[in-house]
Design a protein around this nucleic acid. Structure first.
Length: 287
DNA sequence: AGGCAGGTTCTTA
DNA sequence: TAAGAACCTGCC
């Protein structure tokens, strides 16, 4: 790193920055020219770069890394061990996918940010999602400066979001018809009729039901929020890619019981594996 | 040029 | 309750 604090941390478990960045669970990771990722989370900004063999250079103190970023990266969970539970004899496809996509982890992200992010995600591709989220942050986030002297914006609070006009949401933020969803949910959160942080102690089922009650949140978006915002690792989001996986690889049915309680982690492997294959040659997995 | 994209709601049978 | 249409927008 050019300036600021320079600290090296060691991570021995599965941890692949590029794979996590492309996994579709986070939208505020930006690859820099020097190969580091700039990550904005919890009002903070981190630059992190792989520095050979389990060593990573970060621009924060050890203390901040332990307090903020170690939990964020879920470094106290062994994803190698979760991968290790897969029995190639029982599920060959999953075993292949997990090997190919080793390094993916499920981040511990903010529920509120995930609610908004996945509400925005519907019917759009990743670049468009990222654009709208950045625009929302520009419009309503708090301005701060990182260790390289660059400005960044925090993710907006519900109160700040609820104050944005229809014109801003539809114009610069390009939310389209989704603007109503963002408007409604940020109002509810701001006035306290829903409390996404406070829901964190609920069971998976109760959370799922509560999320489905929010305008604009359907089955798929609710599952993503459960998995990425509340870290419910057994949640198994099914989008168009996973429909292809299930149709082509599990014609006899996918056994969720067999893979409890890590269906969500396995979903990430299969999703990434299929998408990467499909992108390269016009989706050869499709029938 | 029409269809589709990492869905959901609203409308209609 | 279950299909089908409509929805923003950018890209092929």
């Amino acid at each position: 790193m050019e300036r600021g604090v320079n600290v090296t941390v060691f991570i021995s478990d599965d941890f692949d920055l590029a794979k996590i960045a492309e996994s579709g669970q986070c939208f505020r990771w930006n690859l820099q020219a020097d190969g580091s990722y700039r990550i904005i989370h919890a009002g903070q900004c981190l630059y992190i770069r792989k520095d050979g063999d389990g060593a990573y250079e970060v621009d924060c103190t050890d203390e901040t890394f332990d307090d903020i970023w170690r939990p964020y990266f879920d470094l106290d969970t062994s994803y190698a061990a979760i991968r290790g539970r897969i029995d190639a004899g029982e599920d060959m496809f999953l075993a292949k996918a997990a090997t190919a996509e080793q390094g993916i982890r499920i981040l511990l992200q903010d529920p509120w940010e995930m609610v908004i992010s996945f509400l925005i995600s519907q019917n759009r591709n990743i670049p468009m999602i990222r654009y709208s989220i950045e625009a929302l942050c520009d419009a309503a986030g708090e301005c701060r400066t990182d260790t390289r002297g660059h400005m960044y914006r925090t993710f907006p609070t519900a109160d700040a979001l609820s104050r944005l006009s229809e014109e801003t949401l539809k114009g610069p933020c390009r939310l389209g018809y989704r603007w109503r969803y963002i408007k409604a949910v940020s109002r509810q959160a701001a006035e306290g009729s829903v409390d996404f942080a406070g829901m964190a102690d609920q069971t998976d089922e109760a959370l799922h039901r509560a999320l489905l009650g929010i305008l604009g949140i359907g089955e798929k978006v609710a599952s993503c929020i459960l998995l990425f915002g509340y870290h419910r690792l057994d949640t198994f989001p099914v989008d168009v890619w996973m429909k292809r996986v299930l149709r082509n690889e599990y014609p006899g049915g996918y056994d969720r019981e067999l893979h409890r309680p890590y269906n969500g982690v396995y979903q990430q492997y299969m999703f990434a594996y299929y998408r990467n294959r499909g992108d390269k040659a016009g989706n050869p997995h499709d029938v």
